[in-house]
Design a protein around this nucleic acid. Structure first.
Lengths: 212, 212
DNA sequence: GCCGGACCTCAACCGCCGGTCGAGGGTTGA
DNA sequence: TCAACCCTCGACCGGCGGTTGAGGTCCGGC
């Protein structure tokens, strides 16, 4: 299992992993005799830590915070109040396609939680929904809805209203269509990669055309 | 002038600035008697350094590389070869709207330089140009063209060809139109902000819709 | 012309972060 | 039974990002 990670991250060692455990970044299960037993999820977590450290130069303290945020997004704080989204940290950086942070789609928010988390008025939320920029699934909204809503609110400060943003929705739908055509079998990793490419292309085009 | 920066970055001190100079991150001019003289550009540079350190947790070594890359983009290496774009560093992170890095639009590349930097075939570049995804201004291409071309190349590995990417161009054009409507007087900071918002909205929409 | 305060250099020092090392000891499987 | 792993725990370490202080220079005001 060490070998597994070493293929991807050259400088990982046993002692490093032990250190990361001591710092509370992973907590592998133990066998009766005290040996560490790494589940797939633990390895995933380690992969995230090592990647963040290598590619984003994040200090362990910050990586730990991110992991904490992700966890709270996934499990609504066992036995507590449903993890008031009021206290959502500011988007770590500004999330691009790679950075899932608290905006994973596994987050489930009520309408009111969404409204509060995004800091918008009910009216604005109505408008966003009527233009399909924010859509409920069943009874709740996902984490990306916060991001959409928050961004729309900032647009609003420039006098750009939800109805002006419809083309974004259309464009996004078309891109998703394109991606889905390509991915026949649901291999999530490829999907993510394509989505990241789409967002990157889009960003570069906007910036390039804006400069002209 | 120290006070100026301290307003924005609480923990900056004289000794810290001296240290940054020793590390080669700024090189203020000197008066005859040896006192440091900070030009506006120096302060801008310091601002960049401090922001990168505080907000992105980047180590000084990396910040220095970024600054170096930016410089080489702006001035084609006085008296040397035109700063072979072959050696362009991998995109620091993956550039979102905020991260200009080496992809500033001030970079000027010949067609061949662009091709090499993006690692694509001349044929692909032809296709990109015929669909207006990459456009020359005068005789050269800007830094974003690299990013567009590189991303298109990755799409190509999935069987998505330039002609499938036209909708991206259209969408980007529409967004730019929207932004330009709002910005009557060319205040660049606002323009950037709106562009960042556009890209963010777009990314969130794609991700959200993909998850359904 | 001289005093106080701000600036300079340079070397020494510092605290924290991210680990590594090794001693001493248990576990496992051939 | 023995080699090869695994464990813990404390000591140690190198580098990064500065800070401190001694010793000296520069400038404005009186």
């Amino acid at each position: 299992m060490l070998q597994l990670l070493q293929a991807e991250f050259a400088d990982v060692t046993i002692s490093k992993i032990r250190f990361l455990e001591a710092e509370g970044l992973v907590t592998p299960a133990r066998t009766v005799s005290g040996y560490r037993k790494f589940a797939a999820a633990d390895i995933e977590r380690l992969r995230y830590v090592l990647a963040a450290q290598r590619d984003q130069y994040l200090p362990l303290r910050v990586i730990k915070e991110h992991l904490g945020a992700m966890e709270r997004g996934l499990r609504p704080t066992p036995g507590g109040r449903p993890a008031a989204p009021e206290n959502l940290p500011e988007p770590p950086g500004l999330p691009g396609a790679e950075d899932f942070g608290v905006y994973g789609t596994e987050l489930k928010l009520t309408r009111e939680e969404l409204r509060a988390a995004a800091g918008i008025t009910p009216e604005l939320l109505d408008q966003l929904e009527s233009h399909n920029l924010v859509v409920a699934r069943g009874n709740h909204y996902d984490g990306d809805a916060i991001l959409v809503a928050r961004t729309a609110a900032e647009f609003a400060e420039y006098g750009i209203e939800p109805r002006h943003l419809r083309p974004f929705r259309t464009a996004a739908d078309r891109e998703v269509g394109l991606i889905e055509q390509v991915i026949s079998q649901r291999r999530d990793d490829k999907t993510q990669e394509l989505a990241a490419l789409a967002v990157r292309l889009h960003a570069a085009l906007v910036r390039s055309r804006l400069a002209r």
